[in-house]
């Protein structure tokens, strides 16, 4: 894959390559953060100096279905030695699926100084770069961030309903089988299913992983992404767009692609997604 700056992205600074990370391992203004689905992976070896954000323990409210609130976020950032000025570089397994999810949650608290390491953990490994088992410790910080603001990057079901009634555009990033309703859940995720199959009316199907180069796990160049989304799904940078999947994690990957790589200004992630919509009494569904 070509250099990031040669791929025509709207915001190329949102991506860093593995070499950049290797050169900034000891940069006190940068915090490298690994976020995986596999809970053993970070402890089995990670980029030297990287801390872990565990999506199950660190990002969610422990009781209700919601994300952490301001106090918990400030405790998390303090524990990780992060200030409001720190540049955060997320990376992880599964083509950065969980890394973009974590980056999206951080944006709820206004921390926009985030980057994604292009290619994720597997690219770092394939390049033969070293891993460390040492868990770093950084001086605790006092992070006085703004209250959580869901209004700019998150969409709730009543907003999605209004969006649908207005004929707004949506991207469904699940598998084609989930989109057309022949499967009620993602393969291997039966407990995250729904009582009804199909998709939100008006949604176009663009599985999230199509934005990734299958060879090295990096993001596709902008012209290929534009072809995928603008030509293939008829969504455009100045439009209101809602992206969704099952619980909002795969769609955070597409949210990142649309917002930062293609420069869509009004894209939101509906994290209620199909586990909410497909179980919602009376919600309109297309197949």
């Amino acid at each position: 894959m070509s250099n990031i700056e040669d791929r025509g992205y709207a915001n190329p600074e949102m991506l860093v390559d593995t070499e950049w990370v290797a050169e900034h391992l000891n940069d006190s203004n940068v915090r490298i953060i690994e976020s995986n689905e596999d809970p053993l992976l970070y402890s089995s070896g990670h980029i030297g100096g990287a801390v872990e954000v565990d999506w199950t323990r660190d990002l969610n409210d422990p009781i209700k279905r919601d994300y952490l609130h301001r106090d918990a976020f400030e405790a998390l950032t303090s524990r990780l030695g992060i200030s409001q000025e720190t540049t955060l570089v997320f990376y992880g397994d599964k083509n950065n699926w969980w890394a973009t999810y974590a980056a999206w949650v951080f944006q709820l608290f206004g921390h926009q100084n985030v980057r994604i390491m292009d290619g994720g953990r597997i690219k770092w490994l394939k390049e033969g770069r070293p891993l460390s088992k040492e868990v770093p410790s950084y001086p605790a910080t006092t992070y006085a961030g703004p209250p959580r603001d869901d209004s700019t990057v998150r969409s709730f079901r009543h907003e999605v309903m209004t969006h649908v009634q207005r004929g707004g555009k949506l991207i469904d990033v699940r598998s084609p089988e989930e989109f057309n309703g022949t499967r009620l859940h993602m393969e291997a995720y039966p407990n995250e299913g729904a009582l009804r199959g199909g998709h939100i009316p008006g949604a176009r199907s663009v599985p999230w992983a199509k934005a990734i180069d299958a060879e090295d796990g990096t993001f596709l160049p902008a012209d290929q992404l534009r072809d995928l989304y603008e030509n293939g799904a008829d969504v455009h940078p100045d439009e209101d767009i809602v992206v969704y999947c099952r619980i909002g994690e795969r769609s955070s990957h597409t949210w990142f692609v649309l917002k930062y790589l293609l420069g869509f200004t009004k894209v939101k992630n509906y994290d209620g997604s199909w586990t909410e919509w497909g179980n919602l009494v009376g919600a309109p569904i297309e197949k």
Binding site: E37, D38, P39, D54, T56, R57, M186, A188, Y189, E192
Partner: peptide, 16 residues
């Protein structure tokens, strides 16, 4: 073995 904090996908793959 792994605890309840295992994600849904990971636990189901291992259950397989």
């Amino acid at each position: 073995v792994f605890g309840r904090e295992l994600s849904m996908g990971k636990s189901l793959g291992l259950t397989g």
